[in-house]
């Protein structure tokens, strides 16, 4: 799993049937940074450049930190084998703390 921040929701009326109307969120992975709590208002420098899209069965809001699990088996288990994604939100994060920061 990776820690990521929800940066938006992807809406679209025309959706593959296999997605079954599920909500898709755009997230950006959090980079570790210095020791301390991972801020919920993590800004640019704490987010990876590339964003990714994940199916969100939990209803995370924009700006929230989430845990994204990756892989086809995770998809099978969370959503069902027919859903066309490999990324799934499995938890909405209350708090995350980095105790030991990146080496200098």
């Amino acid at each position: 799993m990776i820690l990521a921040k929800v940066v938006g929701t992807v809406w679209g009326a025309r959706q593959a049937a296999s997605l079954g109307g599920r909500r898709i969120v755009e997230v950006r992975p959090v980079v570790l940074g210095p020791a301390g709590p991972v801020p919920h208002d993590a800004t640019e420098d704490r987010l990876a450049d590339a964003s990714l899209l994940a199916v969100d069965p939990l209803g995370a809001d924009e700006g929230q930190l989430v845990l994204v699990a990756i892989g086809s088996r995770v998809r099978d288990l969370c959503l069902g084998p027919d859903v066309t994604t490999k990324h799934c939100v499995i938890a909405i994060v209350d708090a995350a703390e980095v105790v030991e920061g990146e080496p200098a």
Binding site: M1, L3, L32, V38, P57, L58, L67, L77, C78, I90, A91, I92, V93, D94, A95, A96, E97, V98, V99, E100, G101, E102
Partner: peptide, 24 residues
């Protein structure tokens, strides 16, 4: 290396009660 921990209330039921660690 374990560098931190994550806490979440709202999560997939299979992850309930599990300790989640951030690993570098």
């Amino acid at each position: 290396r374990v560098v931190g921990q994550v806490w979440a209330t709202r999560k997939n039921r299979w992850v309930e009660g599990k300790k989640l660690l951030i690993v570098r």
